[in-house]
Amino acid sequence: MCFYEGLATVTVLARYQAREPAELTSLECPVRLIHVGSGRVRVELQHYLQGPKEANALRVMLPHGTMVQGLLIDGSNQPTGGWLLIDVEQYDLVLEQPGTLNGWQWQ
């Protein structure tokens, strides 16, 4: 079920223990957010989303102030668009051990 479609501020993060956090923010990024059950959200993109190498988390800030953030589980980030699946966190993102993406890597 789509619960938001429009422009948002999207931040791609690389957060790991014993490393300095890295992030890259895209303003006014067209997205579509779809609730896919069990605390997971699919973020659909209309174009390639820039991010730091080894990104493992995503934060989406909607214009009315709601924030959706979580660890990246799966996705496809292509020049013509794509999608990212995140496990939604209700609080601050935790630092993760490297290699927690189940084989999926930020491209």
Rank of each mutant, 00 (worst) to 15 (best):
L13A: 01
A14F: 01
G103L: 12
V12I: 06
G65Q: 05
T11N: 04
L24E: 07
V94F: 12
Q17E: 05
Q107K: 13
P98L: 13
M61S: 11
E96Y: 15
V31I: 07
M1N: 02
W83Y: 15
E23Y: 04
L93P: 12
Y91G: 14
V12P: 04
H64C: 02
V94E: 15
G70H: 07
S26F: 00
T25P: 01
A14V: 01
G81T: 11
I73W: 07
Q50I: 02
L72Y: 06
V41R: 02
V43C: 09
G51F: 07
Y91F: 13
G81E: 10
S76P: 00
P98E: 14
G65M: 03
H64I: 00
G6I: 06
G70F: 08
L27V: 01
T11D: 03
I34V: 08
R40S: 04
G103F: 13
G81Y: 10
N77P: 10
I86F: 10
G6A: 03
V36N: 02
T25F: 01
G37K: 05
L72N: 10
D74S: 12
L13D: 00
P79K: 12
G37H: 08
E28S: 08
Y91N: 15
A14Q: 04
H35G: 05
W83I: 13
Q69A: 07
L101N: 12
R32E: 08
S76E: 12
E20A: 08
Q107P: 15
T9A: 04
G65V: 02
L101A: 14
V68M: 06
K53P: 04
E96V: 15
I34D: 05
L13R: 07
N102Q: 14
G103D: 13
Y4Q: 02
G82Q: 11
E28Y: 05
R40I: 02
D92V: 14
G65N: 04
E20G: 00
S76H: 12
A57N: 06
